[in-house]
Design a protein around this nucleic acid. Structure first.
Lengths: 137, 137
DNA sequence: CCCTTATTTAATAATAATTATCTAATAACA
DNA sequence: TGTTATTAGATAATTATTATTAAATAAGGG
């Protein structure tokens, strides 16, 4: 289901701004901040406001098609969710990458059992030095 | 090695404020924010300033005896590190608890292999509804 | 034990990220 | 096409965090 359908489903309006922000996230693998998205979009949408970016990101989060990452620093980053996946941050250059591994069902089940929580989601962040930064030392 | 020794080791001064902030973290399992720590301490140290709390937390982070958690919201939380452990956030009441499980060596190795990173650390956050909140629905 | 000095505290200002407010613009639907 | 509720955009407000600076103080040498 595309973003348009999702928005209509929620009784929200389909606007060019919303579509554009989602497109940026889909086409960009750098896990941008709200401000980065704003900068990227500004050339095509000179009237776009940063507040609109924030409001739209909140909305997209609610729909569940994007997620917010809190991987340190003091700004949130955003990411489309094709399926849940861990992230890794290079502590030298600040780059954030997707990881193609998953938590074992086993671990998640153990988490449910030991915590007693009804677990709905998780975030796994690794921190380290990327190969490029390692070579340039 | 206690905090005093660690500080001396780094050539830093041992001050009552630093000890007090660390004590709060050790005796408090709620993963407090800087402001919460400030409030807790204020009764004993009426002259304590919030800036001192922040600076001390940064210092304690550097020593490696505490860690900063970025588990959403827009405020950091802090935690002593007896050993690395996952955390779980109740999305109803906002409580954050330690979890007594660990990532398998297997998974970490796979992460190293597939990413090529020199992995130094990780954070694993689960999100769900705690038993208490579930019952009071 | 006191003096000296570099470090730290505390108060305050500054910055940065995010949220709230409010008016003009616009998507949706009759 | 017109009406209306929603949204965008501009701006102000709020919140978290960091920087600045003068006064206070811990640590080591005499």
């Amino acid at each position: 289901m595309g973003l348009e359908a999702v928005l209509r489903d929620m009784g929200c309006k389909v606007t060019p701004q919303r579509l554009a922000i989602y497109e940026v996230l889909k086409n960009c693998n750098m896990h941008p901040t709200a401000e980065t998205i704003y900068n990227i979009i500004s050339s095509d949408y000179p009237t776009m406001s940063l507040a609109t970016v924030y409001k739209t990101l909140d909305l997209l989060k609610e729909t569940g098609i994007i997620q917010e990452l809190n991987i340190g620093g003091n700004t949130s980053r955003y990411d489309v969710i094709p399926k849940p996946h861990p992230h890794i941050l290079c502590t030298k250059c600040g780059k954030i990458e997707n990881m193609d591994i998953s938590l074992s069902k086993n671990l998640v089940n153990k988490a449910k059992r030991t915590s007693g929580y009804d677990i709905q989601n998780f975030q796994l962040y690794f921190f380290g030095v990327c190969p490029y930064c390692r070579n340039s030392e």
